[in-house]
Design a protein around this nucleic acid. Sequence first.
DNA 1: ATGAAAGCGCTAACAG
DNA 2: CTGTTAGCGCTTTCAT
Lengths: 339, 339
Amino acid sequence: MKKLRIKDIANDLNISKTAVSFILNGVAQEKRISEELVERVERYIREVGFRPSPIARGLRTGKSNIIGLMVESISDPFFATIARLIENMAYKQGYRIIYCSTDNDTEKTKELINVLRERNVDGYIISPPPGVEKEINELIRAGLPVVMFDRYLPKVKTDYVVIDNEFSAENATRYLIHQGYRNIAFITFSSSLTQMKGRMKGYRTALKEEGLKPYVMEIDFTPEEKVMVQGVREFLAANPKLDAVLFGAIQAGSCGLKAITQLKLKVPQDLAVISFDDHDIFELFSTPVTAIAQPIDKIAHKVISILLERLEEGDNAAAPKEIVLKTKLKVRKSSVPAK
Amino acid sequence: MKKLRIKDIANDLNISKTAVSFILNGVAQEKRISEELVERVERYIREVGFRPSPIARGLRTGKSNIIGLMVESISDPFFATIARLIENMAYKQGYRIIYCSTDNDTEKTKELINVLRERNVDGYIISPPPGVEKEINELIRAGLPVVMFDRYLPKVKTDYVVIDNEFSAENATRYLIHQGYRNIAFITFSSSLTQMKGRMKGYRTALKEEGLKPYVMEIDFTPEEKVMVQGVREFLAANPKLDAVLFGAIQAGSCGLKAITQLKLKVPQDLAVISFDDHDIFELFSTPVTAIAQPIDKIAHKVISILLERLEEGDNAAAPKEIVLKTKLKVRKSSVPAK
DNA sequence: ATGAAAGCGCTAACAG
DNA sequence: CTGTTAGCGCTTTCAT
C-alpha cells in the first residue's frame, strides 16, 4: 500500500494531474471542469483515502497550514488553557499548532521567530517579551498576520487581545480599601510589559486617591520556586504593618499563598488577599481567595478568530483590532471586611 | 534582502551547490572536501546568516525535525509540565514540537496520527487512548520511533515510561489502613487504560488483605467540571460511612476537594484524603493533602532521551525500553491517624 | 575533490 | 475544459 501521489490518481483515472490538482484546490468551477469529472475524482479520492502531501504543497506555495503559538511558558496554567482552546478551533479549520515557550527571553524569542518563519508558519500568536518589536514588524511587513495577547507592544501596529489591567487592579485595590484595609501591598513579577505596568498603575491610582502608602514588591523570576516563596516571605515578614496584599499574577499569588502558609498568617484576619487570575488553588485555599478572573475562553476565542479571519481573507490591510476585555472580580472570603 | 538559497551561496563563492550541501550536512570530510574550502563556506554562511529551508529538505529527505506530542489534554497541568520539559530538551537537539490533545478519543487520535504522519514527523511521544494499537504499530513498522508515557498499550511493543501505579495505590491505601481508616473509597475517571487499572488493582489488593470492603466510584469525564463535582458530591453523600478516599488522578482529586468543600466535610476528621499526582492545590488546600507524587522531571527526561536516542541512532531494532518509575508518597495532614 | 542532473509531490502559468 | 511544463530548495547518485 504505497503512498499515492496526484500523478497516480491522474493515471488511474486517465486524466491530467492539473485537473486533479484543480479539483483538490476547489477551483474546479472557475477552471470550468465538468461537474461530472469533479464528482468522479472526488469519489475516487474518498475511496482510496488520498490526501495531498502538505510538505510538497508547502514547498510550492509557501503556506504550511501551521500556526505558531509563542507563550511565556506552556506549563503555565493560563497559557496552557488558552493553548488548548486555540488548538481546538484551529484544528477545525485545518490548522496545526507549533508551540514554543519563550521564557520571556528576548533573544530566545527572536530565534524562535526565525525557526517558525523558515517553516513557513502562516500566522503567529504571540505573548511577546519586550524587545522583539523589530522582528514582529518584519513578520507583518512580510504579510504574515500576528495576533498578540496577554500583553502587547505599543510600537507594533497589529491585532491584540488583552484585559483591562489598569481598571482591574484599581478596582480590586479600591475594593480592599472599601473593606477597610489600609496597608495594601502589590506583589508581582518584575516586568516592563504592558500588562504589569497597567496593573501597577491601577494599584497606585487607587491608593493615591485615598492618600495611602504603596508597598510594592517585585519578585525576580527564577525556576526555583522555593527561592521566590522565600522572597515573598521575607517581604511580608519585613512589613508587619501590611493588612492586605494584591498579587499581580497567578504565579505570584501561588508563591504568596505558600509564603503566607509558612508564616502561619491567618487570611484575612492577618492579611487579606486578592490575586490576579483565577484557578483551583484560589477556590480551594484554606480561605478561598478573591480573584480577578480573566475571561480565558473569550480571550482564546477572540485571538484565534481574529487570526483565522486574517488568514482566510488575506486582508492584512484592515486596521488592527485592539481588543480589551473585562475581568471579573470573584469575591471570596479572603477579602471580607477588616474588623 | 531576499532569502538566500544554496544555489546563491554556491554562485557567490564560485563553487558548486553540491559542495555547499555536503558541507552543510557535515559530510565534507568523507566526501574529501578541502579543509580550506569548508572553512571558507562556513564563514560565509555565518556571515550572511544562511539557513537551509527545512521544508525543501523535508520534501527531499522525508525528515522534518519535528516530534509529535500527543497527550490527553495540553491544559492538564501534568501534561503541560511534561510538554514544557520535553520541549526544552528537544529544542536543544534541533527538534520542534507539534502537539495535539487527543481528548482520549480513539477516532480523533487516529486522525491526528495521520495528520502528523503526512507531515513526516520524525518521532512520536504519545499518551495513548485505548484502541489505537493498529495505527501505532503501523508507525513502528514504518520505522518511526514511538515512545508512550503515563500509560501504555500492552499489545504494542515499543518504549514506554510509566510509574508503578499498582504499587503506588496499594502503598497509599495500606497507609490509610495503618492510620486507622476502614472505609476507604477509590474515586477515579472511568478508564480502561493501564494506569487506571493498575491503580485500581493496587487499591483492591490492599483492601483485600485486610478484609475491607471496596467503595469505587468512576467519574464520567465531561468538560463541565461542575457536573463531575456534583457526581462526587452525591457519591460521598450517599456513602456516609466512608472515612477516607483515594483519588485516582489529579482532576479527580481536584473535583473531589471541591465536593468536599461544598459538603463542608472536615479533612481528615470526617474524611481522610490522598490523591494521585501532586500539585499546588494539594499543598495549599485548607488541610494540605497527602499526594502520590509522580517524578515529572524524570518522566519527561526519560521519554525525550529515549526518543532522541532512537532518532539519532536509527536503531529501532533495539529492544523496547520499558521504564517503570517510582512515585513518592508526600504525607501531609489530610491523612493523619484517625482518632 | 567537484559538477550535472534527477527527483521529492505539488501548483499554476500557458498553450492547446 | 485538459495537458505540458517549469519550478519551489534541497539531497544525492553518478560521472568527471
